[in-house]
Design a protein around this nucleic acid. Structure first.
Lengths: 134, 134
DNA sequence: TCTAAGCTTTACGTTAACGTAAACTTGTTT
DNA sequence: AAACAAGTTTACGTTAACGTAAAGCTTAGA
């Protein structure tokens, strides 16, 4: 009897619209059960929603996210072939994430130096213009 | 007389289509000059293209990237107000990037443990099935 | 002179990821 | 009974970021 959630509970917890959540179901990322016609979300669904949103923030498409979910499900009782496929997908993703880490680091460095140049420009303004006090 | 580039040179160097490069110009991310009707790209344009692609990999929209370029250009001879605006945009971006770093780290951990579980499953298969040699 | 490569503009098509609106059911509160 | 809140389905609309022709210039080479 683990916990369940309504669609609006999940929507407000993760700050997405119910429209999005239904859309994710349509794309087979979530598989809520029903009571009557009302959707009931398990904690597994909740985890999947969380993972979905995280994946999105990382630039994965919904299709890619779905592919990962499916692979993982198939893998859970998988043949050797499935397991190897999963391992190769995993290392694909790992490589992509490492590239992203590098990109982020580069941009962070650029932002740092941009910030420094901004502050210097401000100081120069204040020397010519020591007026605007405090 | 610094170096210049043709559209297809840049396209093949960065592995994008010429269509995309022209589209970026349309969105005012690039500003090549012309010889006759042919576009000539400066090394500044090349840098901007590189930054654009990096920004895209990080999930920025073209509009956001353009906004950053414009802010930076305005800032280069900017008023105090411009400089402060730029600083606040910079810290916005820094915060977003930190969140992304966290996301990546989380996903990397999940991939790690998924990989481990895969390898264990493979070992178990090999114990029941020590056949497929080498 | 013809052709081929590489460039150009113009413009309609496409995909992903929802937004938005309309009309309906179901349960519960006044 | 009436009205409300929260859920549902159906379906058309929207935006971003290009893809994909189609048709025309321009210049080096056979």
């Amino acid at each position: 009897m683990s916990k369940t959630y309504s669609i609006s509970e999940l929507a407000s917890e993760f700050d997405v619209t119910t429209r999005s959540i239904r859309f994710y179901e349509d794309q087979e990322l979530l598989h809520p059960t029903r009571r009557g016609q009302t959707r009931i979300y398990s904690s597994k669904d909740r985890v999947r929603l969380k993972l979905t949103l995280r994946g999105k923030r990382l630039g994965f498409s919904l299709a890619e996210i779905r592919e990962l979910f499916e692979l993982w499900d198939e893998t859970r009782s998988g043949s050797e072939k499935q397991l190897h496929l999963m391992l190769s997908k995993i290392s694909e993703r790992k490589a992509a994430l490492e590239q992203q880490m590098k990109d982020i680091t580069m941009v962070q460095l650029e932002l740092e130096s941009a910030e420094i140049r901004c502050r210097q420009a401000l100081e120069e303004l204040n020397e010519k213009h020591p007026a605007t006090a405090k």
